[in-house]
Design a protein around this nucleic acid. Structure first.
Lengths: 148, 148
DNA sequence: TATTGTTATACTCTATAACTATA
DNA sequence: TATAGTTATAGAGTATAACAATA
């Protein structure tokens, strides 16, 4: 307690600092902000890259399934899927009212690169945390939003 | 490890689940999504309510200081400050190029109500976490974005 | 009826640029 | 020069509504 008074930055002036929601938003914005330019090197937004990764891991998945998995509205999935197809990263096969999507050869390659970028980015931001702390963090975060 | 296989929900299908950045975004969106309607009962957005709370705790603070504290751009602070003033929640006193802001009597009252709403909302979402887990979560989150 | 995919559209949040006034 | 405040505007992300096609 007394030591804190000798620190340059004052202890806590921000009345919102003790709120999980506030800290979540700040941390989320921090990681998002640095991830955007990394994925831009691949010509993709975070949403586009995330969808590509999911498709590469789930051959023949439908747009609706991806949207439910990543919490992206159907209406917003359309332009994302269209861009990935236009870039030649995904191939669509219509079956009835569903559109089964899978990654092309180049799509698989880009998906792997994107996932590596994401993991490197994640590790870089978490380097101040121990492995146990990171696992506890992941577990706590999942409990905050996961169903159940 | 073996116990996890007996859990109802499959282990991990989502290739992004192990990323802190992904979990952060999902958790942040979850808390944000339910906080918005709560603060709308006070006629305020999250940003507006946050700024009001900061003003109530820092008498005579400037817009720039608030912006730096909450990471809100100057250009976006203007309409927020204008709305709080228009609602009679804050009073501004110009000194040179600075505009010192303080909460009005009703502003103080609303700020307290808003902070109570925020804390209740936070507690409701964190009720699955122990006090120790919540503290560890706050600490980890702060390390992810705080300067230094 | 319910679901998939699609388009159009609106709203919020955030970012950039340009300007005035003051230190 | 650097900072504070303001305005206008552009962009991204996300939301609703409506529609056609299919289960």
């Amino acid at each position: 307690m007394a030591r804190a008074e000798r620190v340059k930055r004052p202890p806590v002036v921000d009345p919102l600092s003790s709120l999980v929601g506030y800290q979540l938003r700040r941390a989320s914005n921090a990681l998002f902000g640095t991830l955007i330019p990394k994925l831009a090197e691949h010509g993709l937004s975070i949403a586009e890259a995330s969808v590509l990764v999911v498709i590469a891991h789930h051959d023949g998945i439908t747009q609706s399934s991806i949207g439910r998995m990543l919490d992206i509205h159907r209406a917003n999935m359309a332009p994302i899927a269209a861009k990935l197809a236009r870039l030649g990263l995904t191939l669509g096969e219509r079956r009835g009212r569903e559109l089964l999507v899978r990654a092309s050869v180049s799509g698989e390659r880009v998906a792997k690169q994107v996932l590596v970028s994401m993991r490197r980015h994640d590790a870089a931001h978490c380097k101040q945390l121990s492995a146990a702390e990171r696992e506890a963090l992941l577990s706590a975060l999942q409990q905050l939003w996961a169903p159940g």
